[in-house]
Design a protein around this nucleic acid. Structure first.
Lengths: 188, 188
DNA sequence: TAACAAGTTGACCGCGCGGTCCGCTTCGTG
DNA sequence: CACGAAGCGGACCGCGCGGTCAACTTGTTA
């Protein structure tokens, strides 16, 4: 055993508190607020995560990993176009709960490698959809990676927006990725 | 005359320096850096703009005004669809030079009113394009306002991106706004 | 050109942040 | 249960920020 029981519990308490706090006030939320929300002292945060960036990296790493898993899973779906859409929907929804970008900022080599793994998984998924004719011939995995968070980001600029508005923008965006004259996917 | 000659010159020097600094390092760029870039003392900045927010507001106000003027101008174009696209292109290009959002953050009533004027101008432009059948029947001015900055925002996540990449995303995005089965505009 | 208003400056202040540290508490074990 | 190690807490530090101010310089005008 490498971690004491209460320490493990506190660690996950801290992660949960950090996710909430970052979602609510952005990455600039002070560490002290995270500690307060977790009902712990500030020092405890730095015991588990030597640096605030390490805390951020831990969360981002988790999110990236989940996205990678989903992309890998969806790569086996019959309808690759629908799979891409579902992936983007998941990514946007996840972004709703977390203001952190997986792309910008240097968060250490571990995160960078995870990003590359995710990029590969997404590229595989997108390549397959393109081969099936579900996407424009020039759409790349990078395109999807860049665009998948847009719906949530855009909606956040509106103070009083209906909570499902982002789906509308996802639809508009995905429509721009489909080949010309293609029929819309069911559900839109 | 209400302003001394050198003071007027310094004021515009400061505005230019602030635009550059904000574009380079975001809105969080310290006031001292702006002063240094302008070759002036920090105190001078606060003489012209009592608060950093006032400086930001001045710049944002200028940008919003230009956008409003352009939207009003373009409302008289024959091809309203092409006009909307050109407007979005201008907005995105402007956003390239400035990291400031015209939408989020409270920057006083003056900016808020200017935002509303811009919203009206854009809505008029978009309504006309929609009436001409150049856009989907459910596209609103708000949609265009929210989406027009996306291309630049998205590209900024890529560290080594070709400078014209944003045009590609504008094309994808605008394509999602056009009615189904419509032929692409010339140039794409 | 004299004299005053207007403008400029950089040292200075208070604040809140990320991060440190050491005395104290609590868990796990023999 | 007793004891050592692992974990905890919060006062504390240094830093860089936005903003202030009083001494100084400069444009303007009669």
């Amino acid at each position: 055993m490498s971690l004491r029981a209460d320490a493990a519990r506190n660690r996950s308490l801290l992660l949960a508190a950090a996710i909430e706090e970052f979602a609510l006030h952005g990455v600039d939320a002070p560490v002290s607020a995270i500690a307060r929300r977790a009902g712990l002292g500030k020092g405890t945060v730095f015991r588990h995560f030597p640096t605030k960036d390490d805390l951020v990296a831990a969360i981002v790493l988790d999110r990236i990993t989940r996205l990678t898993e989903l992309a890998t899973e969806l790569a086996e779906a019959d309808d690759a176009g629908a799979a891409v859409l579902e992936f983007m929907r998941f990514a946007a929804r996840q972004r709703q709960q977390l203001d952190l970008s997986f792309l910008s900022g240097d968060l250490g080599s571990e995160v960078a490698e995870a990003q590359q793994r995710m990029a590969r998984a997404i590229t595989a998924l997108v390549d397959r959809a393109r081969a099936q004719g579900a996407l424009r011939p020039d759409v790349t995995g990078t395109d999807v990676m860049l665009l998948m968070c847009v719906p949530q980001d855009v909606v956040k600029h509106l103070p009083d927006a209906p909570p499902e508005l982002w789906e509308r923008y996802l639809a508009i965006l995905f429509d721009g990725l489909r080949p010309e004259g293609a029929h819309p996917l069911p559900g839109f």
